[in-house]
Simulated scan of single mutants.
Amino acid sequence: MKVIENKNYYKMSELVEVSTLSNHTISFYYKKGLLPNTLSTSKNMKYYPEITITVLNMIKYFKDNLNFSLDYIKELFDYYQINFENRADLILQSIQMLSSEIKNPINKKDLDIDILNEAISLDLLDDKEVYFKTEIEVLNVYKQLREYDISTDLISEYVSTSKKLAILERKLSTKVLEKTGFLPEVLVLDILNAFKPYIFNRHTIEEFKKAY
């Protein structure tokens, strides 16, 4: 690692060692616009900023765990205007990318506005002009629940409980940060993508067993 203007940088060989990705793969990601800008020295040596490791870990996670294509990852990076300067912002953006698929966009005006406004008021969705695949799925589930005359109070309680769970997730991450001084981005994504869904669904199954 080399310190340039009080910032840490990696040579390609160091990136290969830390990330376990090949020189060819990293270069391909860079050419595709998935990595932050490099810094060149007078000896024509390229150095990659330290945050590149976080970005490479994110890309690997999205490919291996979520089967995202590189083209779709690039689409996500462009849509969320990835911040290659701030690691905390980058991790937050990775959570957004994991949570919402930006596919099949539908304009707000083309949706059932009454149902949409109800969903927004219950904090199921944000109020915006364009909605994507995951958001439309949430809206459709909400619409079906309302067709069965499910009380909005019950749905509101579900949202409230989700917010409490979100606070606990943040506390888990904060404890790791306090212990290590470093928040592993892959751990954050695993909590959201594997830990939470499995535990939540496991106990949901137990509740359904009681009812039936």
Rank of each mutant, 00 (worst) to 15 (best):
L111H: 01
Y158F: 10
T25V: 10
E206L: 13
Q93K: 03
L189A: 02
F68L: 10
Y80E: 14
D114H: 04
M58Q: 14
K60T: 10
L56Y: 01
V16M: 07
E85T: 09
V55D: 04
S22G: 13
T134H: 08
M97S: 05
Y142G: 01
F182Q: 12
R146C: 03
E129F: 00
K196M: 12
N117H: 06
L165A: 15
I120F: 13
E135P: 02
L76I: 13
R87I: 14
I51Q: 01
Y61G: 05
T41V: 10
H203E: 14
L70D: 02
L145A: 05
F62T: 08
I51R: 05
T161W: 06
L172W: 03
M1F: 04
Y47H: 11
A194P: 01
I155Q: 15
N104T: 11
I53H: 04
S13K: 09
R170Q: 11
V3G: 00
E75K: 14
Q144I: 10
D71N: 14
L92P: 05
L145D: 00
T54L: 06
Y80K: 15
K7M: 10
L66G: 03
S162L: 15
T20I: 05
Y48C: 10
N44Y: 03
K43F: 06
S151E: 09
A211Q: 12
N6D: 09
K46Y: 07
P197K: 05
P49C: 04
S121E: 13
P197R: 02
R146V: 07
K31N: 12
S69D: 03
S173E: 06
T41L: 12
E50C: 08
D126S: 11
I91K: 02
I199F: 11
M1E: 02
E169T: 13
F84H: 07
M1T: 06
K196I: 10
Y131E: 03
I51E: 01
L177M: 08
K109I: 15
E101V: 03
N86W: 03
I115F: 02
L154C: 11
I59Q: 02
V3W: 00
F77L: 09
D114G: 04
I136S: 04
L111M: 04
Y48K: 15
R87D: 09
K143L: 01
D190I: 14
N44P: 02
M12V: 04
D64L: 14
T180Q: 02
K133H: 13
D149G: 03
P36N: 12
N8C: 14
F28G: 00
Y198D: 03
K43Y: 06
V138T: 06
S40K: 13
Y131A: 00
E75M: 09
D114P: 02
D71M: 14
Y10Q: 02
E147T: 08
T152C: 05
S40T: 12
L165Y: 10
D71Q: 14
M58R: 04
R146W: 07
V176N: 02
I136A: 07
N104S: 14
R170H: 08
M1L: 12
I102W: 07
T204I: 05
S162D: 13
N140S: 12
M58E: 12
F62S: 08
K209L: 11
V141A: 08
K196S: 09
E129P: 00
K108D: 00
I91E: 05
S173F: 07
I73A: 09
V3T: 03
S121Y: 03
L21Q: 08
I150Q: 01
E147R: 14
V176Q: 01
L183R: 02
L34R: 08
Y30H: 15
G181N: 01
A166E: 06
N107T: 07
